[in-house]
Amino acid sequence: MIEISGFTALYIFMLSAFTGYEVISRVPVILHTPMMSGSNFIHGIVLVGAIVVTGGAETGLEQAIGFIAVALAAGNAVGGYVATVRMLEMFNPKDKKGEA
């Protein structure tokens, strides 16, 4: 853990917000759904927090809630990844003739 003071956090928030805005503003409509799925995968990073918090659990109650947090977060990350890959594969020129 590093110390992140309130103002440092504020700067991180601000810069990240602009980054997210910039990255998505140039996306063609055809990629909106895969993009939503992709960004859905990226907030699966919550898994890291879930692991840390559960690792530090000291009571049964904390362990129980932590368990739920980790299971849900893993579902977010893995489900988001697989769904995004499946969608994006369809835009892959190589596989184009495969299914039809």
Binding site: I12, T19, G20, M35, I42, V46
Partner: peptide, 8 residues
Amino acid sequence: AGTVVGSA
């Protein structure tokens, strides 16, 4: 990661 997704 959270903020990027939030704004995007």
